[in-house]
Nucleic acid binder design. Structure first.
Lengths: 253, 253
DNA sequence: CGCGCTTTTGAGAACTATCAACCGGGGTGG
DNA sequence: CCACCCCGGTTGATAGTTCTCAAAAGCGCG
């Protein structure tokens, strides 16, 4: 793990979820609110299946996942759900509410989870280190991620989407101190499919196919990445990418 | 056009590109840099095919399109391009550079264009009204747009993608004072396809099909939206959406 | 222990990509 | 001035991927 080059020296210590050289909200924030002389930050416990907030709710805070897993979902009038993201410990939630003052998506806990509340009133924000400083960078990072997701959806095959998803998840778990090769999916096939623009059957079938080829092993929601290089090579031959997608624009990179 | 509820009263006047109730960078900014007591802002002229900036360039400014049209593109090592967006007058460019200090995408002019430079040094930004205040909202808005694009790519058919694209373009042109029913496409079929995750052949075919059904008329790059209600109805029957996509999550909404 | 939900697997259909040929306009150069 | 070429767009035939519908198996949970 590389150093955290955030502009918040008071929060820079003990940054465990800092990925690469990106600025980040250090884990110290999620671990103990009053560390480094910060004011105590409220937390919210959310049980599996419950919502941290719903789309349409007025946005008065953004959140940092402290523990557990969330999914971000858009809900249509007909009740159908579209998953727009999965958030692990250290990830931000609710940034899309900054646009119009109302959350654009709901945050649902995929297991019993906890989140730190970052009130978005200007006065409160100034208290939280240089969050005000940092916010554009964090938002920019989310923007880049959504952009990568859009590219993935625009030009990757089902197999490539799944490989990208698993490699991305693997890396994020590793950064948090979990195994990079064996892990437990907290989301259903249907949720994965919704996120990746595939049906749950295609997700299941594609996982089976990857297993058949010896790239990984799946048993229900447990996944073992057996042959990581081969998984990366799924994107390899430029001709295997649909519509000449730029390489290196991958979720896991 | 509704009122511009920006928090920048000094810039709120003469806001022509303000869409709906979103906060915006008023056209006054793009029209005359020194209006409302602002410092003169630099402009850059970019000729058709030229780059305002390229991916990888250090990000020291964001831009507002003053006139013309741009495309945002990611370029792979193999030279293939992936279009990630189209920007018209008043739209922002370069926000994805705020993440890591380097632009994630290049901005290429689709016609002779001009852009206002907003230096991103803190000192400079403070000069530009409350841009510092406004930035999170603008970024949030971009985030929501990219999210909608991802949803579109995840669960819409080719026909729905095209309809969404055209309706969105129509609305944006209308807001800028152009005809909402007849307009000129500044981008090629290949660029549209790249953006929408389709091949250029499918774009062409789908446009022909929509014309065949009398929903629009196309001749090269000229488009006439003949039956707008029918175009909206393309999304209508929930069963016609792939994978139960949430309605109302459309680009043109 | 049975019920419901998730997952797997199959067969067929639908959609879109791919390959290929053709058309048309605009600019270039003879 | 005209022929030619190049580029963008259109259209056709075909193949491939993914969706849809369907049934059965696995698993957790009351």
């Amino acid at each position: 793990m590389t150093a955290c080059n955030t502009s918040m020296p008071s929060l820079a210590a003990a940054c465990a979820a800092c990925q690469g050289d990106d600025p980040c909200l250090p884990c110290s924030l999620t671990a103990s609110g009053d560390a480094a002389g910060l004011p105590l930050l409220a937390r919210r416990r959310v049980r599996r299946g419950e919502a941290l907030f719903r789309d349409g709710d007025p946005c008065r805070s953004v959140y940092v996942v402290r523990s557990g897993t969330f999914k971000s979902v858009l809900t249509g009038p007909d009740g159908h759900e579209q998953v727009t993201g999965f958030q692990l410990a250290g990830d931000l939630l609710g940034l899309d509410g900054l646009a119009h003052g109302r959350y654009a998506s709901a945050a649902i806990a995929l297991e019993d989870s906890e989140a730190v509340v970052l009130p978005y009133a200007r006065a409160s924000l100034s208290h939280v280190g240089d969050l005000h400083e940092l916010l554009p960078r964090l938002l920019g990072r989310e923007l880049v991620r959504k952009q990568k997701l859009a590219v993935l959806l625009a030009c990757m095959s089902a197999e490539q989407r799944l490989a990208s998803f698993l490699l991305n998840l693997s890396r994020r778990l590793q950064v948090r101190g979990y195994s990079a090769t064996g892990f437990h999916l907290r989301m259903s096939r249907a949720e994965i499919g919704s996120y990746l623009g595939l049906t749950l059957e295609t997700v299941s079938r594609t996982l089976s196919a990857l297993q058949e080829r010896g790239l990984l092993r799946v048993s229900g929601r447990h996944v073992e990445l057996v042959d990581r290089p081969a998984l990366v090579r799924v994107f390899g031959p430029p001709s295997s990418r649909r519509r000449g997608a730029p390489a290196g624009i991958l979720l896991h990179a």
